[in-house]
Design a protein around this nucleic acid. Sequence first.
RNA 1: GCGCCCGUAGCUCAGAGGAUAGAGCGCUGGCCUGCGGAGCCAGAGGUCGCAGGUUCAAAUCCUGCCGGGCGUACCA
Length: 546
Amino acid sequence: MRLEALVRASIQDALAGLGLTPPAEIPVDRPSRPEHGDLASRVAFLLSAERRVPPPEIAQELSRRLASHPAFREVRAEGGFVNFFLDPGALHEVLREALRDGDRYGQSDEGRGRLLQVEFVSSNPTGPLTIGHLRQAAIGDVLAEAYAQLGWRCVREYYLNDEGHQIDLLAQSLWARYRESLGDGQPIPEEGYHGDYLAALGEELAQAWGDRYPTWDEAARAALRREAVVRMMAMIHEDLDAIGVRFDVWTREGDLHRRGLVREVFDRLCELGAVYEKDGAHWLRSTDHGLSRDPVLIRSDGTPTYLMVDIAYHVDKFRRGFAQVIDVQGADHVDEQRQVKLALRILGLPDDFLHYCLHQFVTLKGREGVQRMSTRAGRFLQLKDLVAEVGRDVARYFMVMRKPESHLVFDYELARKTSMENPVYYVQYAHTRIASVFREAEKGGELPADFVSVDLSPLVDPEELALIKEIDRFPDVVRAVAHDFAPHLLCAYLEALAALFHPYYARVRILGQGAATPARLALLAGLKLVLGRGLAILGVSAPEAM
RNA sequence: GCGCCCGUAGCUCAGAGGAUAGAGCGCUGGCCUGCGGAGCCAGAGGUCGCAGGUUCAAAUCCUGCCGGGCGUACCA
């Protein structure tokens, strides 16, 4: 049994024995100081309020009753806390269970096969992906993987905004580049896209088309739009390949229009009295519901705004049977998010259907020239170039090692280091070292046939027991990553695990130690399992050799 | 102006009601003959932005202020 469950169950029994009703949730903590035990509970504080007995008294009684429990070496009441010191045997069982579960360790069936969508990146096809999109790609991918571990059927979806004004600007910018290649200098629209990446494409089009589109007319517009989107998508796919993110579904804005969905959802909002007309446009009554402004849904020229389409898109997601949807978006979308959530509430969708994982932006430290990025101005670091410089593993890891809502400073110098100062290598190296020990063990014929049945009783060293306690946390970390949209917790966990392992390895000899050897190899097998599984969820490789 | 996010060691960041606030980098000083030294150990370094409040208990919750980011479009 996992440690927290073990402690919780023991408290439950003890309370029953004392004739006390346990609180709805029995708190179990992991104390930061070793003298406070392996685990601790402040349940006595909760009970004292209703029982009108001081916490220390309740803690005393509890510890007396729990003292003889076989899983605990000692149970001590201190202040109002009950501190549990584990018997090594209980820890050995934790390790054994992890080894028995193998790749299923850390998984659960809370999702019960329900459908969950993670929508992320969804960058407009107006340029290649940059380091800014990388953060979102990494976060979304890890969240999807974490939920998959919890038994959800996850769909990774990319919303492709291939219509509208921005695409026109892109097309016209590309047209200007194309004319430029033919020696006909046309200005790129002020609000257009000035990056070099369009110049190369313009050159190609000039080769292919010659002088076919001399003026910016309807024919040119149609051709350039089509061409631009196709080319931009090709670049985006290249970038996604570079970091190993694959999407299951691509939804194009155009499809939503063609299916009449946008119109239908707009009409429904009107029926519900949530829309009014002013200055020839149609507005959502958001201020009536406490938001700071009313947004336009249908412009005075009759075209729907991005928001209107987004609302319809989410209705579509609901109809497609997703039990939950997580949209990963940058901090510049807060207002949009509130408007969409409000509209969905008006339309009667359940409140817990849509969740936003909002993330702050990335700044780059230690590399020339790219402090403030802008796709429009052509000032950015392309994702695949970054990956070429630091590697996929480092690129992905660095993007998720801070919590999404914090600003992230990408330390380029650190990212380029291949020593253990770089946390990615620090964690990977732990995995590699263990793999290396196993290779040696096999050579020397010391590798047990089956770790699950190994006698673990030689594992009594405090460092060994501390490592098992960390292994015990892994399923909780996976769950927290998913529920709290917090991939960084997994990074912190893996680094802590590696930080326990490296000193242990430096001090304690594994091979050639008699009965201790198979036990220590079993411990290393458990560590390797968890390190490998954790890295896999992050989409980072777990090398056998480096 | 208003809304949201963030102010924790020199730097980058964890911790989000519990016991004496942590990690990595950097800094100082020790360890090179064993399974991978791409290392290991020890140490210094903090009024948790400021001021009030709630609580047995606040970095954590509430209020106000200060500083930074993002938004506040008939752009997406």
